[in-house]
Design a protein around this nucleic acid. Structure first.
Lengths: 194, 194
DNA sequence: ATTATAAAACTAATGATGTTAGTTTTTGTT
DNA sequence: AACAAAAACTAACATCATTAGTTTTATAAT
């Protein structure tokens, strides 16, 4: 059932990740990837459905990596502590893998079922954390959307040099997360979340 | 001083915006733009420094448009009201100009002085709003970074189909902004912001 | 061991794109 | 009417994604 074993998909994605992280996601082309793997560009079509297929697989790969790192930090924690750690790790991932992180949001069709599924694992993790605040169902979803917006927005702006002023970014992030947590608290007490 | 008047830069950017908003920023190529303007691709080099130059100018153009819309809404308002309206308008802009909004964060070099300057007008506007909360200097900057993260993150995720679950997005946004406002309030009273 | 097979990698070719160089056209100014 | 400068052009090239068809090669079956 396997008359010839050539390149492994994992190796391809690792090579693509390396290019993305060092030269930016735009530098990930079939040509550059083939060169790095020492094969000819058309050969990549045996493993990946063109550039679009590569982007999609890279997006899923990135989401899985991100999920793994988040889970590592989340286990054994709950409440404020868990949210703080999750937030820091999310941003840390984007910092350590700038290109791969970009790729997670650059899939040709973000609504693709496989991409959605990879993303939903992260969402589910966040939902469980929110449950610790007594947020259930719709309230939990709104809260998770908020947290994701915060973390993605921060990571994305930081990556794109959006924060021009030289003021400690880690402080900004910590304050932002704490502000969010405080806000959730207030909103709950005011009955705006339940 | 002007032996021949050809295309106007404004017209070029408007055409590019149209392509970006209808077909996505990736569809904005010198070829497609030239076709829309009924000229040959090399002619664009008389107005724009290649594809990179176009992207940069489009980014600045988008930031200016965004700023104009935000100012319109911010005038005559302050405090919670101003922040809520600003947030809604920010997201509304991204929705009405998905491609142009993308372009604002896709400049070849985000640290380019001209791009930074266009962005800093928006930041300054937000800083002034934050001053109404009694947040000055560093505290104001942290708060603005937070608000930008929230709004960009939300707009970006929404655009990329990141919110898969069918639950009213406007509600999520309103709750998020209110959560942020509440959080700022609590943090101030706890002395973590000053 | 030999052979068949299926996957992987290849060569060759095509179309689209960005870009440069050099030429022609156009139009406001002198 | 002549000039000059900007705009638009043609021609050409390099790079890239992609398709079609061929060759190689390692495994599986004989």
């Amino acid at each position: 059932m396997s008359p010839r074993i050539g390149l492994d998909l994992q190796i391809i994605l690792q090579a693509a990740t390396q290019i993305a992280d060092t030269e930016g996601i735009e530098a990930v082309t079939l040509a550059s990837l083939a060169k790095k793997l020492k094969i000819r560009p058309p050969s990549l079509y045996n493993h990946v459905d063109g550039l679009h297929g590569l982007r999609k697989k890279l997006a899923i790969y990135g989401l899985e990596q991100l999920y793994n790192r988040l889970v590592q930090e989340a286990i054994g924690r709950s409440g404020d502590d868990a949210v703080r750690v999750l937030g820091k790790e999310y941003v840390a991932f984007a910092r350590s893998h700038p290109g791969l992180y970009e790729a997670t949001l650059l899939a040709p069709d973000p609504r693709d079922p496989e991409v959605q599924q990879a993303g939903s694992k992260i969402v589910d993790l966040a939902v469980r954390l929110m449950n610790a605040y007594g947020l259930e169902d719709e309230a939990a979803i709104h809260a998770v959307r908020g947290l994701r917006s915060i973390l993605h927005g921060f990571a994305s702006l930081e990556q794109r040099g959006g924060f021009g002023i030289p003021l400690d970014l880690d402080v900004s992030l910590s304050l932002l997360i704490d502000t969010f947590i405080s806000g959730i608290d207030s909103m709950k007490q005011n009955g705006k979340l339940h």
